[in-house]
Design a protein around this nucleic acid. Structure first.
Lengths: 211, 211
DNA sequence: GCTCTTCACTGACCGCAGTCAGTACAGTTA
DNA sequence: TAACTGTACTGACTGCGGTCAGTGAAGAGC
């Protein structure tokens, strides 16, 4: 896993790694909020000032941690899609992807990490491009599904697959945000599936299909 | 305007008002982040501890400030809908409402207030029910539009108007969130209108309509 | 008169994120 | 050898959100 911000000459690289790895250990044990920068630097055996040579802020470190996480997530989403039956329709694929995302969010990722991620993205002084940038792998794989659906006539829209994929991801992100602010009184998977069905019916060539 | 948390016997009420009003003045001049609790209590002429008798946290005060704001916003949305021509279709009303919301968000409310609102909602230890609760007026007025659309056969869905309204508001909130994290590189109004069109086509009885 | 309780209010204090003037030391030049 | 430069690192310090033991005044009961 590659971390940004590093001048990579010997020691400085390893200091950064020490900080990142110490933080990763602490993050796996405690909530982000409960892990102090003091604890991280103590565990890494460096002074507090050193931390800020390598990370612009605590949020920046959290962002680096999350970016790493997200790229592995997207790889898993891709694997999930690839494991679907050959003849699956684009709608089914998109719904299956949605279900998979909901499962990951409510399961492996969990409320606290999601909440922190959404907070950090709002901070806006931290580079979260791997998560928010349109070159994120998730945009690519959902655009692929949509493109194939359009090519075989199953889906139809005046909008490009890329634009539709952006609307899909925006919707999913919005629903995950809603899950965070309503937690635990919100069924993420059910809401996400219903929303995607509403959207799909809007771009389906054959209307009147089940909702 | 009614603020929560108040024991309302004489002096205590006025101390709360002093705090709230001092904060409101400062919030109108500076960003939320730049207004310190120390500045608020100094301006209100009370000690810091007193602040925490009336507000659970700085976020709670901001929430109270925003709640007030939102109820006035929703009233304006209602007025906007009422001012639309008599024969306007449900789709047109929903699109017009969407446009109005986008205008308010990018205009009167602005990036910083939106960002803070979305951050505070994530905090989850602050009561934002007036904004997130399903009894928020915005849910009611959008459900009304959808209900009338269903009743006159323009819209069709196995889902209830209330559920559809929740999906509508969730979508709008999600797109506003997206606007915040991409600010300023995101056309809120255009994205919101397109998304609502996608959703509408999904619940329109007459398919094949323009997208 | 006197204690006891209640309650609005106080401000010194704490924890934590983030800062910055300063140190130590390994080259580099003269 | 001496003076200079760049750089990895340091830790005391600041600012701010939030806490809590304590104060003073206004009743309640005797």
């Amino acid at each position: 896993m590659q971390i940004s911000y590093c001048g990579d000459n010997g020691d400085s690289q390893s200091t950064m790694r020490k900080l990142f790895d110490s933080a990763a250990v602490l993050f796996s044990k405690y909530e982000f909020d409960d892990v102090t920068v003091d604890a991280i630097v103590e565990s890494a055996g460096v002074a507090k000032g050193t931390f800020y040579l390598y990370f612009k802020s605590k949020d920046a470190l959290i962002a680096a941690f999350l970016l790493d996480y997200v790229s592995r997530l997207d790889a898993e989403y891709k694997r999930h899609l690839d494991s679907q039956p050959r003849g699956a329709s684009a709608s089914d694929l998109l719904l299956s992807l949605t279900e998979k995302i909901a499962d990951m969010v409510t399961g492996a990722i969990g409320y606290n990490r999601m909440k922190t991620a959404y907070k950090v993205m709002l901070a806006h002084d931290v580079n979260m491009d791997t998560i928010t940038g349109y070159n994120r792998f998730l945009y690519e794989i959902s655009a692929d599904v949509i493109r194939r659906g359009i090519e075989n006539g199953e889906l139809q829209s005046s909008l490009s697959p890329d634009v539709l994929a952006r609307h899909y991801v925006t919707a999913i992100r919005g629903i995950c945000y809603e899950w965070c602010i309503r937690y635990p009184d919100f069924d993420l998977k059910e809401h996400a599936l219903t929303h995607v069905r509403i959207m799909l019916n809007g771009i389906c060539a054959k209307p009147g299909s089940s909702l």
